[in-house]
Design a protein around this nucleic acid. Sequence first.
DNA 1: AATGAATGAGGGTTCATTCAT
DNA 2: TATGAATGAACCCTCATTCAT
Lengths: 218, 218, 218, 218
Amino acid sequence: MPWKEPSKARERIAAEKRGAIIREAARAFNRRGYHGTNLDEVAERLGITKPALYYYVKDKESLLLACHEIAIEIAMEAVARANRQGGGADERLGNVLHHYVRGLTDDLRGCVVLMEEGALGPANLRRLKRQRDVYEGALREIVRDGMAEGVFVRCDEKVAVFVILGAVNWISKWYAADGPRGSEELAGMISAQLVRGLRIGPTEGALLPDSERRGEAV
Amino acid sequence: MPWKEPSKARERIAAEKRGAIIREAARAFNRRGYHGTNLDEVAERLGITKPALYYYVKDKESLLLACHEIAIEIAMEAVARANRQGGGADERLGNVLHHYVRGLTDDLRGCVVLMEEGALGPANLRRLKRQRDVYEGALREIVRDGMAEGVFVRCDEKVAVFVILGAVNWISKWYAADGPRGSEELAGMISAQLVRGLRIGPTEGALLPDSERRGEAV
Amino acid sequence: MPWKEPSKARERIAAEKRGAIIREAARAFNRRGYHGTNLDEVAERLGITKPALYYYVKDKESLLLACHEIAIEIAMEAVARANRQGGGADERLGNVLHHYVRGLTDDLRGCVVLMEEGALGPANLRRLKRQRDVYEGALREIVRDGMAEGVFVRCDEKVAVFVILGAVNWISKWYAADGPRGSEELAGMISAQLVRGLRIGPTEGALLPDSERRGEAV
Amino acid sequence: MPWKEPSKARERIAAEKRGAIIREAARAFNRRGYHGTNLDEVAERLGITKPALYYYVKDKESLLLACHEIAIEIAMEAVARANRQGGGADERLGNVLHHYVRGLTDDLRGCVVLMEEGALGPANLRRLKRQRDVYEGALREIVRDGMAEGVFVRCDEKVAVFVILGAVNWISKWYAADGPRGSEELAGMISAQLVRGLRIGPTEGALLPDSERRGEAV
DNA sequence: AATGAATGAGGGTTCATTCAT
DNA sequence: TATGAATGAACCCTCATTCAT
């Protein structure tokens, strides 16, 4: 039925345009901050005018929200895929981070999770924090698992996860899509470094009582 | 000359007030971003009015600059102290990070290095980037040293340092001065985790052929 | 010429659509004011899109003009019919108002004569004011007649007519087509009250010396 | 204590400026409608800039609200004063309207009660409608009293009051402070005409059964 | 040393209007 | 005949900054 095609095609084009707007906005938010980003520039970089942008997007805030939602989606999918792949806590953590970094760099060119206070309205903020807490909770659980399995150093899992997320979220500040390292390579390097930061070393391991050394995967 | 004393005292008081303003501004910049921060709020939190603030500070930009300069100063001093303390590359890295984290959390309650583009004028930005590059360079050198010494895993030192700095700079996003962990304790946990992320593990070290354990600039 | 018929039918349909648009616009103008009315809503309430609306109407301003023209037409016809019906000044005034109120409530559901400055262009505004002055002049003449006939209290006919027109034009603010009172009933009540407001009472009439009962332009 | 004077004086000046802004806004709202009014013009007519205006007023909406509140206040006081003066229902109605018209023309140069939908936020609108209903209720009660007393024609008091309020609220459309009629004179003319519109006339009175003619004041 | 008042510049958002289809 | 998409102009509002006091 070729007569329905135009509408479908139009819809796809519209969705693509919306996507492009969100990606460009993400880029700008990362660089200049939410309040420092002005939609005229975003529009100009896309070769459209600001009102045209408003045809696809309700609000500046909704743009930020969309960015965050994509990031959360990437995060959640990273967790899901890593869990499906299974393995010890260290492997799982490595996989989660690998998927997450790849997602961020590929889809949002290093996304925003910068969370400037006062950027999102209270309702959106609440919802987002809830989702983010789920993600953080999943990571913390992996860290706890690793400690239980004896592959991870004993530590405060909250702080440990903050450190990891800081390293990952910061990527947007220095990642250049056209840099010398590809997305895949970077994901490997970063996740390895971060997993190693928790994995039990030769010295520490020696100090652990035997009862806690069971199930080490390394 | 007793008649000069009051002036000295006044100067000290003025300097302290200036310091308080900068700290409060740092707090706000961290939370809401540079452009999201409005000076009225900063002033109000200090119990003064906005014009009073302008008596002590030339500009909004100069506030940001001062924050960055303090951070750089803390960073440089951390490097200097660690170098003075000496030790292997891993120890030195640990010491640098420990000092740095302590400085940030104590003096600026988790400082701004957020570098929103367009916040600083080009001249200031250039100067700051130069200083930051010195700091990053020092860290990279330590990492290279560690690889040469065989205590650090072989890696891209640029990426490794980005990861470390990300983790550290992100602290401002979650650090609460009244949280359960003190500044000293946190500094210890964080630096340990980050050093461990580079330190060679039992397996990795053993597997490397001797030929690859020297001169490792990737 | 059967081949001309469809065109005639189409014309009628188009005219009806145009009429529906104008009525809907009148409704909106009344409720939200000219500048507060947005054509998207008008179109949506009619089940069409905004560009479709532009197919039938040149301008937003032309919509307002059309509303006013209808109102003026209703007014003029009310005067003409009342004059044809004849009778004393009080009867004539009552008839005018009765016809006018009926016309407004029936055709424009309580029309706009709200005259926001800056809504109509100068040319249209001038033309409209001229027509409106004709109407007001006709009413003032009836009032003067009434005073001359001794049926109306002596008064400033300008103010008296303003009061009357205010009461009538305000109807659009409270009239609900589905309210408890029908258009006819309301027209009766309102016109009676307004005529009574000018009609000479038992006391007033009796007390006036003859000399003052003639030639009463205040 | 002359040393506190400047502050007091400043406060008075500020209050006066705020008052001037509100009056000028009322004027503009009346002429151009709420949405048709642009604050730049209001400011310009006052010889200040728009941001200066925002120093005294929170919002465009708050300006409208202030206008309405003044109108309501005038209305309520008109009712209170008329009740204090006492008299038959016709006298009371006349007094209320007289006070109201004087207040409107004097304080707001013929104020806004135009109630464009969508101009006030839902909360403010609700509050305002409640107050307006109190006023309308008071007028209706006077009309009912008048019918009970036999001084007013039998009618639907709701419609009767709508007619009266329309006539009064419309004043702002034609009142010119520098016109030929003073505020006091106009108030007298208008209230007389409107009371007469309800007062029982010679004919109507004759038709009433005796039982309903008690207590007529005329 | 500090404040009330004012301003210029800029950004988010809306909307009447048009055009290609 | 009707629509999706786009735009220019305008408006509300905020805020860093200054000035008279």
